[in-house]
Design a binder for these strands. Structure first.
Length: 353
DNA sequence: CAGGCGTGGAG
DNA sequence: TCTCCAAGCCT
């Protein structure tokens, strides 16, 4: 009894993180699997998003929609409002679409195999395997960023990501136990998050250090090897904060496709497409005495944005709605939009009593 | 299949 | 300030 899995699970039973969507070894419910709804919701939120950020969102969602049937009965706009600030907004639309399918076609119960889960919107290779393993005990092949790091270090896999992913999957196929596969993948992720970290890994505390090729050679931080990144271009655009006499702000709903799709915001130029220069009040959605309020800088995954913000007292026409300043926090406003509005109205999103 | 798609924290 | 990046998915 000295396998990779044994060593890792012994460590996990002592050091597992306590997380709101998880049944921890510390809960004393050995063998009890967590609610698939909780696993699914947390896994979708955790896609490219930190645990620290997700916790509060997860708690809010579960409090408001305790089951997948509740989420299916919700309005999409309300889901977008609760998701605001979490990013990657297509996840929220897919989340709702997935809940609708589970309610309508699966009687409110999640499919129990990776293959079936994979068919659902917003559930890909990783998430389907994670739900199957954690919620249903399937010995599925789970590979996420943490596991890629652990695997490439264990085996000193020199192939750059993402090509190394199949080697990582092979590694997981070798080490994943038939017993407790869900705990095992969570243990791998906890190890990657707390011990086998990108920088300054704590190898001296690692339960699987003796089998680790990179620890032996001292090349831990050289793995995983990644393809070089492309430089981010800088794009420019303009945003228009239209205000009514009573201070209310004019919002519009953005198109479902593209940047910040389906979210609310102030009117902007088409900065998602324009490479540059589409700024200035000439591009304003309506003519008014626009006053410049400086530039908001924001960085997305693949470009930097310099957004010139203009403000005016004006009555826009077209589709949109007025929102009193004290109600702005309840709208589906992405962080960029909160920044733009705050540059004109510094107190708009200040903490409320 | 390479690129689109957010955000906030760490170093 | 800037770079990296955190439990990826979709097209």
């Amino acid at each position: 009894m000295d396998s990779f899995a044994d060593n890792l699970l012994i460590w996990y039973d002592r050091h597992a993180r306590t997380l709101p969507w998880r049944i921890s070894p510390a809960d004393g419910k050995l063998g009890v699997l967590p609610d698939p709804y909780h696993v699914w919701l947390s896994e979708v939120m955790l896609q490219q998003t930190t645990v620290a950020t997700v916790k509060a969102y997860f708690e809010k969602f579960v409090a408001r929609w305790p089951s997948v049937m509740d989420l299916a009965a919700a309005e999409t706009d309300d889901v977008m409002k609760e998701w605001a600030g979490l990013g990657y907004y297509s996840r929220a639309r897919n989340l709702k679409a997935c809940a609708d399918i589970i309610a309508a076609e699966h009687g409110g119960r999640f499919p129990q195999t990776q293959a079936e889960l994979l068919k659902l919107p917003g559930i890909g290779d990783y998430t389907s395997a994670a739900i199957a393993a954690i919620a249903f005990g399937e010995r599925a092949s789970v590979v996420d960023g943490n596991i890629e790091r652990v695997a490439t270090r264990q085996r000193e896999i020199e192939t750059p990501l993402p090509d190394a992913k199949k080697d990582c999957r092979a590694f997981m196929g070798e080490v994943t136990p038939a017993d407790r596969p869900g705990d095992f993948v969570q243990a791998m992720m906890d190890l990657g998050a707390t011990i086998c970290t990108p920088r300054n890994p704590s190898c001296v505390l690692c339960p699987v250090r003796y089998g680790c090729g990179a620890a032996k050679s001292g090349r831990q931080v050289e793995f995983p090897v990644k393809a070089p990144k492309k430089a981010k271009p800088t794009r420019k655009g303009a945003a228009f904060v239209a205000m009514r006499d009573d201070g209310a702000v004019w919002l519009v709903k953005r198109e479902d496709k593209g940047m910040l799709g389906g979210m609310a915001g102030v009117p902007t130029t088409d900065w998602a497409v324009s490479k540059d220069g589409a700024t200035g009040t000439g591009a304003a959605p309506l003519s008014a005495d626009w006053k410049p309020h400086g530039v908001v800088r924001h960085t997305f995954t693949h470009f930097h944005l310099e957004l010139e913000v203009y403000a005016a007292q004006t009555e826009p026409d077209g589709s949109g709605w007025w929102v009193a300043q004290q109600d702005l926090h309840g709208e589906a406003l992405p962080t960029l939009m909160k920044k733009a509005i705050s540059s004109v109205l510094p107190d708009a999103f200040k903490a409320r009593a």
